[in-house]
């Protein structure tokens, strides 16, 4: 058993005072976000075939695909409920045509819940 002394951390702690802090002043300084971080969804209306696999697999009902064209000439629109979204990315995996991709934009905070319901065409 070693001899125990109080304040044994001082050998590391004292030099730390003069080192660069490990924290970042985030909103004022940029944060490093990886490129394939799971952030806001992006939607490619051209690629979408309206199979609604994403709607079926979304655990949070955060995504809606609506046909805004006619029955013959289909055109799709997506509504994302970003306040419901849990950023799991299952819709991206489920999509057979890669119409949904996650961007690394994480700065989605808003004071109004309605701003988090976004439509993409």
């Amino acid at each position: 058993m070693k001899k125990k002394i109080p304040g044994a951390i001082i050998k590391t702690a004292f030099p730390t005072i003069f080192q660069k802090p490990a924290t970042v002043g985030y909103p004022f300084e940029p944060l490093k976000i990886d490129d394939d971080y799971r952030g806001e969804l992006t939607y490619d209306a051209e690629a979408c075939i309206g199979c609604s696999m994403c709607m079926r697999d979304c655990p949070a009902n955060a995504i809606e695909i609506i046909n805004i064209g006619t029955k013959e000439d289909k055109k799709f629109k997506a509504i994302f409920h970003l306040d419901h979204c849990i950023y799991c990315g299952q819709c991206v995996d489920s999509c057979p045509k890669d119409a949904l991709v996650m961007s690394n934009n994480i700065e989605l905070a808003s004071l109004d819940r309605n701003n988090l319901k976004v439509e993409r065409e």
């Binding site: 070693k2 001899k3 125990k4 002394i5 109080p6 304040g7 044994a8 951390i9 590391t12």
Partner: peptide, 12 residues
């Protein structure tokens, strides 16, 4: 390893 050392050597 430092924390192991610290846990074994700090009296408080």
């Amino acid at each position: 390893n430092y924390y192991v050392n610290l846990a074994l050597s700090d009296a408080t």
